[in-house]
């Protein structure tokens, strides 16, 4: 499975699986995974973007087509399923967030389904898509978008922007500044301390969101890869590997659902906190 220039060692195998397909613009034109891309901000992870945008479009297309055909009478099985998901998200939002905001529920739905679908790419056996890509001449292919820190961070950043936007919209700039500076210690002398504490709290929100999802999925993917290493050894280890792979897969179904749910739930909680006056 090693790409050009990498020896077929366990380290090489793992390294190959954890490398994104990178494209950056250099002086000599487009460069694929070249040394020139390192440290260059304008590098694009084509595989992460392809799978995440593809899955997002799939999600929106599926829900949109069901929504357009939705009957108010007896729903079909697909419509039932979609409505169950929507109802689940809607009730989660209503339990936590009591204000009126037309953005939060669709946002939560998008996050939940999209993150779940991206996580679900972890269920595809680790070598399938990279092998296909290699056969098609693509040297690197990282299938699970949520194992890319860029992907998780960008969603967390989107949520962060919304947190700040609604904090200012609901409480005004003065209210938001007051929230950052006048608590937990309501005294003018404590303003620097308060500001430090509250800023850390604020910044910690997107970072914890992004790192939690990334960490769980990255670790899960790594374990899949490590178990996959056993396949080549001998029949006993291969059998053990298949068993372990299956066990981890079943366990991982819970992890990916849970992580998608946690990301959605924390988004709702953070946004409802942004709507609350203290």
């Amino acid at each position: 499975m090693a790409a050009t220039g990498e020896a077929l060692t366990p380290q090489g195998y793992i390294q190959h699986h954890l490398t994104n397909l990178q494209v950056c613009v250099t002086d000599e034109g487009l460069a694929l995974n070249s040394k020139l891309c390192e440290g260059n901000f304008w590098t694009w992870h084509i595989d992460s973007l392809f799978f995440s945008v593809g899955l997002g479009v799939l999600f929106l297309w599926l829900f949109r087509s069901v929504g357009k055909k939705a009957t108010t009478g007896v729903p079909g099985k697909l419509q039932c399923f979609i409505e169950m998901v929507v109802e689940f998200v809607d009730s989660s939002v209503k339990e936590t967030f009591h204000g009126r905001n037309p953005v939060i529920a669709p946002l939560a739905l998008t996050i939940f389904v999209w993150v779940f679908m991206m996580n679900f790419m972890d269920m595809v056996p680790v070598d399938w898509i990279p092998s296909l890509a290699a056969a098609a001449g693509i040297p690197y292919m990282k299938v699970v978008p949520t194992t890319d820190l860029n992907i998780t961070f960008s969603m967390a950043l989107g949520v962060f922007v919304l947190i700040i936007y609604y904090s200012i919209k609901v409480k005004g700039i003065s209210g938001f500044v007051k929230e950052l500076t006048m608590q937990p210690f309501n005294h003018w002398a404590m303003i620097p301390v308060n500001f430090l504490l509250e800023t850390v709290t604020l910044i910690a929100k997107p970072i914890s969101l992004a790192l939690r999802l990334f960490g769980n999925l990255y670790a899960g993917e790594l374990i899949f890869i490590l178990i996959a290493l056993m396949y080549g050894a001998n029949w006993a280890l291969s059998t053990l590997g298949v068993t372990l792979q299956l066990g981890w897969l079943i366990f991982h179904i819970m992890v990916i659902t849970l992580q998608a749910f946690i990301f959605m739930m924390l988004t709702i909680v953070y946004l409802s906190m942004a709507h609350e006056d203290h």
């Binding site: 901000f41 304008w42 694009w44 953005v103 992907i151 960008s154 989107g158």
Partner: peptide, 15 residues
């Protein structure tokens, strides 16, 4: 890297 920006745009568009 720039993937962050692309994904942020995609995320906001999808939402």
């Amino acid at each position: 890297n720039a993937t962050l920006l692309g994904q942020t745009v995609a995320f906001l568009l999808f939402v």
